[in-house]
Design a protein around this nucleic acid. Sequence first.
DNA 1: AAGGTTAGTGTTATAATTACACTTTGTCAA
DNA 2: TTGACAAAGTGTAATTATAACACTAACCTT
Lengths: 229, 229
Amino acid sequence: MKYTYTHPRPAVTADCVVFGLDDEDLKVLLIQRDNAPFEGCWALPGGFARVGEAIEETARRELAEETGLKGVFLEQLYTFGDPHRDPREHVITVAYFALVNLAAHTVRPDTDARNAAWFEIEDVPELAFDHNRILQTACQRLRGKIRYVPIGFELLPRKFTLRQLQQLYEKILDRTLDKRNFRKKILKMDILAELDEIETDVAHRAARLYSFDKRKYDRMTEEGFNFEL
Amino acid sequence: MKYTYTHPRPAVTADCVVFGLDDEDLKVLLIQRDNAPFEGCWALPGGFARVGEAIEETARRELAEETGLKGVFLEQLYTFGDPHRDPREHVITVAYFALVNLAAHTVRPDTDARNAAWFEIEDVPELAFDHNRILQTACQRLRGKIRYVPIGFELLPRKFTLRQLQQLYEKILDRTLDKRNFRKKILKMDILAELDEIETDVAHRAARLYSFDKRKYDRMTEEGFNFEL
DNA sequence: AAGGTTAGTGTTATAATTACACTTTGTCAA
DNA sequence: TTGACAAAGTGTAATTATAACACTAACCTT
């Protein structure tokens, strides 16, 4: 089948930067390409936009096809349109990013004859196309965003301790935070529900578990609450 | 000339939301369409991406062609890809926004047989495609951004009074600000240069003129200064 | 029972934010 | 020339937010 237009058109793709938290390590989901160009090279999951499909759907579909990940919240990151970012031809990519709890979402390690794996942010190899740059943009956005939006609960298990939450913030912001001040601040936001449970299987005093209370959060955001840390 | 691909492709356009300040009114630059669809309808300036052209260049070129505006700073806003946003076919648009000083940049009111005009934000009519939605997104971004970045000097004349600056902030944020607190805050940022001039042709005591000092600003941003108002 | 590990908690000093009103300077018109 | 008008310009005090800082309690392990 051939498709013909009166003017040449760039191709459009959608790529996903999926962050996951695993044993307090911040990771990103990559796939190994099984086609030219960059065959065998690691890359962000993504693929070509279909006509009639919203771009976010493209991102969602490709992510599911290539990694098995489904039902994650995608946020648009940026559109990269340098004409030379793909050596074959002009390809514009709309990048999305997502945060997932690595334990709750199982990633099929091998789908579509593609290899998918989580990489520590610091250990990400040279990627196909301009994907290193896209990843870098996503990291910046994550850091920028967490300072004024209580993002990141998607990365944690449903029930988590304040230590886990603080460690996550420290990982993303790449600096240490004062325990007492962090707890004060985050509890004052009134977006966490204190559970009647404590963590188990730890070789020390068990910490209280909390869960993110979306109802409270929605109320706060409506009131224009400032979540800055 | 015909261009043929093995898969169908959505078309790609770039659109610009250009804000301007005119006698303390916040305005947006629109063009009147001279082709179907939405012939005669007002719309954001923009047009189709060419192969080999960076998307931002598309935006810049179309803006110059349709309105005569050149050399403005464009920032990517968002990419809209709903398959039905254009009634003809699937068109993905990458939206940009810009801030210009309306007095300094002359807009050719009629170029390419198109009519271009500034509209008060509140008086914007029903626009072509999903352009009202794009404009709304741009307004939100502007409001969000001005709270932590001292944006907006592009909107003012090179020399301005603190009253003008405050009124601009009030327009964008849509609330009144305390004069003394505003002045304290903005002067403490140390990004303004106090000039040895005062405004002229006013029917009351003339105010001191200031100009934006980019050198100071760059120093501040490197230090991670927080400009929140 | 002792040692190790993290949980959990308050106070104080400093800095930022908010609320608030009067005098000064200049223009314009009577 | 003077009186009325309009906006410029300026400081303080109360409140709130932030930052720095260290010990005891609880629980597990050996």
